[in-house]
Design a binder for these strands. Structure first.
Lengths: 195, 195
DNA sequence: GTTCTATCTGAACATACGTTCAGATACGGT
DNA sequence: ACCGTATCTGAACGTATGTTCAGATAGAAC
């Protein structure tokens, strides 16, 4: 029996990507088979190929869409002219955006090595654009002497690394609320770059 | 022909682990086959099983040895009583130890999900011991009012995450020397926790 | 009510996987 | 010079992989 009841392209496509997202995040791209993904959707493996040309494209699409959403969500912020305030906005945005999408973030960063070289280059360029946004803030603050940073490039990476650390331990409903976490991290980031 | 010239257990064993280390780091545990590892050593796949009961044990041993070395190297430091100085020591030790072992570090952190539950528990306990060492420093400094930290547990994880970020970009022979890198990170860490 | 087509099944393809093991070989000890 | 054994080969095992495709079916269009 094919074309089971209530099946539609608009439904199956997203369901496949959602299943792949969860499985890739939990077990890793290489360790997940197309049959597992299909099984989670309730479909045979062959049906996946109505929605993706191959497994690699499935991974790439997940990562690409995530990075696009990250950048466009960040662009939607109307950033403060004040560097210190802009940095505070960045910290809050980064923590909240990433905590809302643990699987996407995990994949976008753990599965880079499983991308083909061309796909890797493309994702890397998007990641770079995001880093540049933070570096611009740090440079502005440095020029205005509100920050005192030895090396803005390193500081950019250090701040992002520090913020990403929150993903390894934060569980909603845990000891601290999101607001508290944001406050704690902002305190540390602010002091680490302040004049 | 078996038992080729100059082959010995003392030589092949380490060579297998070295090959596995590099391949796991580059392509990921799940994406690397026993035949690839054997090929890099110049041996047939079956020969690997003279040195490891299975693929999982190979991964576990690499991670376990790495964590043991980390802890014993840290224990060899004679730590300062002064919390600020102890933190400086920790930052320097962490950066140098980890930059000397990029592959080991990468694996110990990316391949956790490919460990069996029992193996995972064991590695996690070792990692926890290392984190506790840093937290002890932060607590001491907090008690002595030389640090001003909202939450020592979070600060511990934030500092380690920040320091680990150095591994994503540092290349020896690059723009900055190891000493300069250490100085830059120490500046940021110190300020992020200082009173 | 018939036709048309998007969607899915089920089976097959070639290839790869981790692991085992009988047999071959080269070195260390005598 | 010979033996014993640690070490490795080469082939095989069953299973799994990504991908393809002819055929079946269900809903949309008329």
């Amino acid at each position: 029996m094919a074309r089971t009841q209530g099946s539609h392209s608009d439904i199956t496509g997203p369901r496949i990507r959602k299943a792949a997202l969860g499985l890739f995040a939990r077990h890793g791209y290489a360790a997940v088979s197309m049959r597992q993904i299909a099984g989670e959707v309730g479909v045979q493996a062959g049906a996946l190929y109505n929605y993706t040309p191959d497994k690699q494209s499935l991974l790439f699409r997940l990562m690409h869409e995530h990075m696009q959403e990250l950048l466009s969500a960040y662009d939607d912020l109307d950033q403060s002219e004040d560097a210190s305030e802009a940095l505070r906005q960045f910290v809050g945005f980064h923590i909240r955006f990433h905590l809302e999408r643990p699987d996407e973030v995990f994949i976008a960063y753990m599965e880079l090595r499983n991308l083909t070289p061309e796909n890797f280059t493309e994702i890397e360029a998007l990641r770079r654009r995001y880093e540049d946004a933070l570096e611009a803030i740090l440079r502005t603050g440095q020029a205005a002497r509100v920050f005192d940073i030895a090396d803005t490039k390193i500081a950019t990476l250090a701040v992002i690394a520090m913020l990403n650390g929150v993903m390894t331990w934060f569980r909603s409903g845990g000891r601290l609320s999101l607001d508290e976490v944001e406050q704690v991290y902002w305190d540390m980031v602010r002091r680490s770059v302040s004049a």
